[in-house]
């Protein structure tokens, strides 16, 4: 069955690593939609993150280069110390503009561009995190007609990001990690 969505974007910060690992471990090797992740990370530690996630994943995990075309069935991770955008025409573009909310990559900026590109065909998910980056981004997904999900704050190691998102917009679903996984599997 053709999904009504074209992409899934996930934002997370402190406390999200384990959740992300569980989610990607649950996805089958033929998962058809692209998963685009913007996670806060240490700016100078370029290597290691992809490798750590790859151990769990049946899908290839890629830190996109600038202007790299986005393909289905892959998991993308915003590279360290760059903002990551989706441009019209489904290419990534990167930028070194100023940090926003102390963050580069900025989850808000990634979500803004994905929402502009995919409109109602986007699923936005915000996970555990210790700042409010991502809240306006998730609102832009809602404003564009896309579907919004936050990890249940009760389950989050640090609920600041999910709470801020819920304050910024009326989210469609508040899900535990298990429910997020079930939802993603049912999407296709």
């Amino acid at each position: 069955m053709e999904s009504e969505y074209k992409a899934i974007m996930i934002g997370g910060s402190a406390g999200s690593f384990q959740v992300v690992c569980k989610i990607i471990a649950a996805l089958p090797a033929d998962y058809p939609l692209p998963i685009i992740m913007c996670l806060h990370r240490l700016k100078h530690v370029r290597s290691g993150f992809v490798e750590a996630l790859s151990i769990k994943s049946k899908l290839p995990i890629i830190e996109p280069h600038d202007k790299e075309p986005l393909r289905n069935g892959r998991i993308y991770l915003a590279p360290a110390n760059y903002h990551m955008y989706i441009e019209l025409g489904n290419r990534f573009s990167l930028s070194t503009e100023d940090v926003i909310n102390h963050s580069r990559p900025s989850i808000d900026l990634s979500f803004f561009s994905a929402s502009y590109n995919y409109k109602r065909k986007l699923v936005g998910i915000i996970l555990s995190g210790a700042n409010k980056d991502g809240a306006l981004g998730l609102k832009s997904v809602a404003d564009g007609g896309g579907l919004t999900i936050v990890q249940d704050p009760k389950e989050c190691q640090v609920p600041t990001m999910t709470t801020a998102s819920m304050n910024a917009t009326k989210v469609d679903h508040i899900f535990t990690t298990k429910q997020i996984i079930d939802f993603l599997l049912k999407l296709t």
């Binding site: 996109p64 280069h65 202007k67 790299e68």
Partner: peptide, 8 residues
Amino acid sequence: LGASESIL
């Protein structure tokens, strides 16, 4: 080039 740039 920059760390995440390549020639396409």
